[in-house]
Design a protein around this nucleic acid. Sequence first.
DNA 1: GAAAGGTATTGAAGCGTATCAACGATATGC
DNA 2: GCATATCGTTGATACGCTTCAATACCTTTC
Lengths: 342, 342
Amino acid sequence: MEKVTIQDVAREAGVSLGTASNALNHPEKLKASTLQKVQSAMSTLGYMPNQSARLLAGGRNASFGLLLPSLDHGLFLQIANGAHSEARRHGFGLLIASADDDEQLQRSYLRYFMGTQMAGVLIQPLRIHDAPLDADFPIPIVYLDLHCRQPGYFVAVDNRAQGRLIAEHAVSIGSRRVSVIGSCEGPQAEHRVRGIRDVEATNPSVDFDYLLEGSTGLARDGFMMAQRIAELPETERPDFIIALSDVLATGAIAGAQDAGLRVPDDIAIAGCDGNPLAWNDSVPLTTCAPTGYEMGRRGVQFLVEQIGDGAGRERNPPVEEDPCHQTLIRPFLLARRSTVRG
Amino acid sequence: MEKVTIQDVAREAGVSLGTASNALNHPEKLKASTLQKVQSAMSTLGYMPNQSARLLAGGRNASFGLLLPSLDHGLFLQIANGAHSEARRHGFGLLIASADDDEQLQRSYLRYFMGTQMAGVLIQPLRIHDAPLDADFPIPIVYLDLHCRQPGYFVAVDNRAQGRLIAEHAVSIGSRRVSVIGSCEGPQAEHRVRGIRDVEATNPSVDFDYLLEGSTGLARDGFMMAQRIAELPETERPDFIIALSDVLATGAIAGAQDAGLRVPDDIAIAGCDGNPLAWNDSVPLTTCAPTGYEMGRRGVQFLVEQIGDGAGRERNPPVEEDPCHQTLIRPFLLARRSTVRG
DNA sequence: GAAAGGTATTGAAGCGTATCAACGATATGC
DNA sequence: GCATATCGTTGATACGCTTCAATACCTTTC
């Protein structure tokens, strides 16, 4: 049963190689009876087309690649789901890979996707800096979660608005002193902090302080930071903690509770990136996030836009007029128990 | 910048085609200076190897395929993570696809993986019935979540034990009357019910009844079933609901609460498949699950076992002595607020 | 200094398919 | 009945690469 080639199929069906190939790619060109013969030959032989050979010979790949930073964030799952359903709707497959927070691996998968002549690639880069790569690439690329004033397709996330929403929420529930914890490394975090500062600027009566130490982003960092905060004398102690990620926030809740504080009565705590996988049972977490599903969906739409609908169709002529295609996905606030008293 | 072939690289570096190829696949065969020349030629030209051509010419694919039933179950994410890290540890990549609960699509991805000569495929089939496929396939396959007395590699999940654990839990907290809700379609559900019946048999004093109607598996089904249960006169009303999935359980909690029952005080409710994505904030859900991470990890180990460690190494001689390679992943109980009173 | 043994490089063959110009068969028009 | 158009089929070619036998170059040895 091994190694059935289209040659074998052709022989079995008593037709030429080209005809057998046509049965696969242009069935409308064959007489019904011939098609029938070839197809039954294929199934009796258990023929499976060799993808590599098809692509090499000039066939089009009907799959998109999705390259995510990692697999342990709920947002990525949503993105994958959105991308998947949209891809399917247009007759494309979707292959997902994770860079596992490793730039080396990210590059390697990207090259792999290029090398397999994917119909297009959706990528959420690990760093802003990774964006300009696309100039070199011969297949359509769409970047996720990235503002970028460059020619190219971007599904941008308004991280700044995310920070703003959370900070506004803190202000609106009457907080007097807000601590922002987390590491400000990634571009995302940086923008979120900027959004928080926007709110700070317009609310001078509220104190904001920033504990943006290089953290690994693990829950235990949040735990420790919350404990440090809890040790402050009550007059200096913040009544609201904004954690730059939900994982951190979850740790912070545990840390605060461990130190004897009640959440949200003594101190309110919010996350900032809508990661269902980080939520645990102690206190439902207030957070803020874009809809990942929509991100994936829009991303694939951009890809389809570039190469044309349907797996086999022509590639669209390149759209030159406005070389900057961006969609901005708006975040929404999810206000829950960890900040809402009563 | 388009279409740089290894020919171009060879010309640029002033070496032959074969040497350029060796720089990629057997760098140890080249003189250091030659290797240097070729590599710099590659980077100045922006060369990216054509995966299809490599495979077609006999190269080995250093990636595994993971084919999941869908992307909206937390367990699948864990599986993906486990598989990914183990694959990486052995120098393999991992490409993930989702069958989206569609058998047609499952077949199609499977053929795609075959056609693209993946080093191996990890698949969690939609139905038990999908198992025997492997006889026809020329590359290593490992099945997930499947008992099967056939030659082949299986990472089995003890769904029966899952049912047993939950049912034992119900008995152990003193329940008198247990309702089991859900649809008994998939093999998983069937086994879970069997486990529940095991417990029923050894605890004649506890009433079990089964409401196994064809449900779509959506939360709203759980909602409605719980409402129906809540309408029963208090003497006949069960004090424990086992939902065959966490999604259903979450719906059931909402339904019970909507009908004025307190969870867990008036009625305890448990899920059965450990799906973090289904958990919401109302009441932390008691559930039961295998560790997906371990499943993915073991699955990839089985693959590696068949083809040999390292991307480039020889394929191991087929192990014939015991043609049935199974690992049984044990589930664990997660007892939380939705069943634990006080 | 010639033979023997290594080591580094070459170039041709072939992987399985899609494509396409050429061809044969069948139908159409006069 | 012949030329012409239409449809179905054929088979050679090329895709970019890996592999491998053959070759060229460089050391070592007696």
